[in-house]
Design a protein around this nucleic acid. Structure first.
Length: 614
RNA sequence: GGACUGGUAGUUCAGCUGGUUAGAAUGCUUCCCUGUCACGGAAGAGGUCGCGGGUUCGAAUCCCGUCCAGUCCGCCA
C-alpha cells in the first residue's frame, strides 16, 4: 500500500505517528519563504500538510546543504499544482491553529523536505474548481464528469446511493426475496414507450430491443415458482428526457406470488420505511391511501404533493352524478366565461389577500403560458377588513363572493384563485397553480417527507386520436373483480366514462412518483381478452406475446408487484429533490447525449454492413 | 414536434434604450508574505461577444436564420 491512512481519518490520537497519505492536491497556500500548507484530498476527507520549507538540519550541516535543501523545497511547492496526485510521508502533529470545520482539523502532517513528497502523477489545471460550490456549468461538469465526481456533494450523492441500494437489498434478503437477473437483449413489443433497438449480426435485418422493464420476465419467474423476486436493474426507454428522466435508468423491480394488493402495499411500504430509517434515520408514519379519483379531484394530478393542503375546490354546479358541489355559485351571473366553462375551480392561498396588482398580473401570465394553457385567472381577495374584492366584481355582488369564499373555507386575509375551462385541462392547470403557490409560499418543505399510496387507477383510457383503448399502467394489469364483465361486454363503448378500475397503485413522495405496480393477470383467457380490448389482432398477440400466454397455460400463480424508480428514490431520500442527474455517475444530457464520450456517434460502413444495415 | 430562458476571458457572470480601448469576480503566471485553511498583498497574461446573413456611417447590443445547452408541454404501458 502506498498509504497507511486515508485523508479523512487522522485525529489527535494519531499524534506522533509517522504516516503516509495519498491524494489529490486541493490547494497550496504559501506563506512567505519558509512555510507552506497543502490540502491533500481523497474520497474520505482533507488533511493539511504542513511543509516547513527551511528544512530540518543539524548544526553540523553546511550552509550550502541548507541552501540547496531550501531551494529544492521551494521548487517543489511551486511545482505542485491543483489536482496533482501525491504521496506524502510525515509525522502527525497537533496544529497550532486548529480548524473546527473539518474532522481532521486538530492535526496536520508535518514535513521538512521535498523528499517527503512523491509526485505520483501531474495534472493539468482543471477547467472548473473542484470545490463544494463549483464554478462549473452543467455541460462542462458533464464533459469532465470524472472531475465533477471528485467534488464532495456529488461524491456523497453516489456514496449515499450505494447506501440506499444496500438498504434495499438488505430488506429484500431479510424478507426472502431472490435477486435474479433477466436478459437485456429481448424483444420489441408494442404498447408503452419507444424501444431502444439493437441490430442482430447473426440474424440480418432483425433486431433485439432493450427492456423498458423486466415486466414479463418477472411474471415468468412467478410461473416458475420463485414467489418472491427482486432486481436492481437497468431499464431503457427511448423517450424525451427531463430533469427526472434518463434514457437508461435503474429500477428496483419486484414481484410476489399468492398475494393481494394489500400484501404488496404492506411489503413495499416496509421497504421504503427501511430505506429512510437506514439512510436518514427517519421513522415514517403509515402511508395514507388516496384514490386516483380523489387525487385528480383535490390535487389535479395523480401524484399529489401532500406536504401542504390548499386542495382544489370545485365550483361547477352538478359536477358529478352524486350531486356534490351542486350549489350554483357561479353560473347565471352574466359572466360568460363561467357560464360556459365545463369546470370552474379554484384554490385558497392563505394570507395572500395583500397580493398586489403586479403579483396577480404575473400569476395570470404564468397560468396563461402555453404549458399551463389557462385562459385567464380570476381572484377573490378576502380583505383584512372583511370586504371582498374580485376580478369579476362587475358580475358578482359581495354576498355572492362571500358564499364562494365560504365554500373555500376562506378567512380574512386569504386569496382565492379561480380557473375555468375544459375539464381535464383546467383540473391539471389548477394542480400546477397549486404547486406554484406552494412554491411561492414556501410550503414545499425540504425537511418534510409525505408518502402516500395512490390506488384504484383506471385500467384503461380511451384515446380519441387513435380511437382505441390504452392501458394506463401496462397490459398485464388485472381489472378489479367488479369490472370483469366490462372487459368482455363493456369495452365497445368508446369513452372512458365507465372504464374499469385496476388493482394498480403508485407510491408518491412529496409529489414525485417513486414507484408503481399492480396485481397482474394470471389467466390466459383474460390476458387474451385484454390484448383484444387494446386492439391487437390475434396474429399480433400471437407474434408478440405467445411466450407469456403459453406460460399461463402451465399453472401461473396469482401474482403482483411493483417497480421503483431507483434514481428518483435516491434523489428523494438523499436530498428531497426531483433532479436525478447528480445521483447518477455518468448521466446523459437533455438530448440523450453523453457529452464526455460524445455518444451516440456514427459507426463505420463496415460495421453497418456486418449488421445488415446497408 | 412545441413554448420559454440562456450562449461574452479557462470558469461564473455583468454589459444589450447601437457610439471611446468589451468589464468584474474567480482561476492561471510572476513577485512579496512564518499559522494559513474561501489565506492576504502587488503586477501581468488571457476575448472569433456560439455560428451565418441582414439593417446601419457604426452591431456584443437591433432583425432574420441556424446550432448548442437548460427548464417545461407533448411523449414517458
Amino acid at each position: 500500500m502506498l498509504r497507511t491512512h486515508t485523508c479523512g481519518e487522522l485525529k489527535k490520537e494519531n499524534e506522533g505517528q509517522i504516516v503516509s497519505l495519498c491524494g489529490w492536491v486541493s490547494t497550496t497556500r504559501l506563506l512567505g519563504k519558509s512555510l507552506a500548507f497543502i490540502d491533500l484530498r481523497d474520497r474520505y476527507g482533507i488533511t493539511q500538510i504542513n511543509f516547513n520549507l527551511l528544512g530540518k538540519f543539524s548544526e553540523n550541516d553546511s550552509a550550502e546543504k541548507k541552501q540547496s535543501g531550501w531551494e529544492s523545497n521551494l521548487n517543489l511547492i511551486n511545482k505542485l499544482g491543483r489536482e496533482f496526485v501525491i504521496q506524502v510521508k510525515g509525522e502527525v502533529v497537533e496544529r497550532k491553529a486548529k480548524n473546527k470545520n473539518i474532522p481532521t482539523g486538530e492535526i496536520e502532517v508535518e514535513i521538512h523536505s521535498a523528499d517527503a513528497i512523491t509526485i505520483l502523477n501531474e495534472s493539468k489545471t482543471p477547467p472548473f474548481t473542484i470545490e463544494d460550490e463549483s464554478d462549473g456549468g452543467d455541460e462542462l461538469r458533464m464533459k469532465y464528469r470524472y472531475l465533477d465526481l471528485r467534488r464532495t456533494p456529488i461524491k456523497n450523492n453516489l456514496l449515499q446511493r450505494h447506501k440506499v441500494g444496500q438498504a434495499v437489498r438488505e430488506y429484500f434478503d431479510k424478507n426472502g426475496f431472490a435477486d435474479i437477473e433477466t436478459p437485456f437483449l429481448i424483444k420489441s413489443t408494442p404498447e408503452g414507450a419507444r424501444d431502444f433497438v439493437v441490430p442482430s449480426r447473426l440474424n440480418p435485418g432483425e433486431f433485439y430491443a432493450l427492456p423498458q422493464s423486466p415486466q414479463t420476465f418477472k411474471q415468468l419467474l412467478m410461473v416458475s415458482g420463485f414467489d418472491r423476486y427482486y432486481q436492481v436493474v437497468r431499464c431503457f426507454r427511448d423517450e424525451d428526457l427531463r430533469a427526472d428522466r434518463q434514457p437508461e435508468f435503474t429500477q428496483i423491480d419486484c414481484e410476489m406470488s399468492f398475494v393481494e394488493q394489500e400484501d404488496v402495499l404492506h411489503m413495499f411500504e416496509g421497504m421504503v420505511k427501511h430505506v429512510f430509517k437506514k439512510v436518514r434515520n427517519l421513522d415514517l408514519p403509515k402511508f395514507p391511501r388516496m384514490t386516483y379519483a380523489d387525487a385528480m379531484k383535490y390535487y389535479g394530478v395523480d401524484k399529489p404533493d401532500t406536504r401542504f393542503e390548499m386542495k382544489i375546490v370545485d365550483l361547477t354546479p352538478n359536477p358529478s352524478p352524486k350531486g356534490e358541489g351542486s350549489e350554483n355559485l357561479v353560473r347565471g351571473k352574466g359572466f360568460k366565461v363561467y357560464d360556459d366553462a365545463e369546470l370552474i375551480g379554484g384554490i385558497c392561498a392563505k394570507d395572500c389577500a395583500e397580493y398586489t396588482r403586479k403579483q396577480l398580473d404575473e400569476l395570470t401570465e404564468w397560468v396563461k403560458r402555453p404549458q399551463i394553457g389557462a385562459g385567464g385567472l380570476g381572484y377573490i381577495k378576502y380583505n383584512a377588513d372583511g370586504t371582498l374584492k374580485s376580478s369579476f366584481d362587475k358580475f358578482f355582488d359581495e354576498a355572492s363572493l362571500k358564499k364562494i369564499a365560504e365554500k373555500f373555507s376562506a378567512t380574512t386575509g386569504d386569496l382565492i384563485l379561480i380557473l375555468a375551462g375544459a375539464e381535464t385541462k383546467t383540473r391539471k392547470a389548477l394542480g400546477e397553480l397549486r404547486l406554484e403557490m406552494g412554491n411561492r409560499l414556501g410550503l414545499r418543505d425540504k425537511n418534510k417527507f409525505e408518502c402516500l399510496w395512490v390506488v384504484d387507477f383506471p385500467l384503461l383510457e380511451w384515446n380519441e386520436e387513435e380511437q382505441r383503448w390504452f392501458a394506463m399502467h401496462h397490459p398485464f394489469t388485472s381489472p378489479k373483480k367488479e369490472d370483469m364483465d366490462w372487459m368482455y361486454n363493456g369495452y365497445t363503448e368508446k369513452n372512458s366514462a365507465h372504464a374499469p378500475k385496476a388493482n394498480a397503485y403508485d407510491i408518491v413522495i412529496n409529489g414525485v412518483e417513486i414507484g408503481g405496480g399492480s396485481i397482474r393477470i394470471h389467466n390466459k383467457e383474460l390476458q387474451q381478452q385484454m390484448f383484444k380490448v387494446l386492439g391487437l389482432t390475434k396474429e399480433e398477440t400471437e407474434q408478440k406475446f405467445s411466450f407469456i400466454l403459453n406460460a399461463f397455460e402451465y399453472g401461473a400463480p396469482p401474482h403482483g408487484g411493483i417497480a421503483f424508480g431507483f434514481d428518483r428514490l435516491c434523489s428523494m431520500v438523499i436530498a428531497n429533490e426531483d433532479y436525478i442527474r447528480d445521483y447518477i455517475a455518468f448521466p446523459k444530457n437533455n438530448s440523450g447525449r453523453d457529452v464526455m464520450l460524445d455518444s451516440p456517434s456514427p459507426i463505420d460502413e463496415k460495421q453497418k454492413k456486418e449488421l445488415g444495415l446497408k
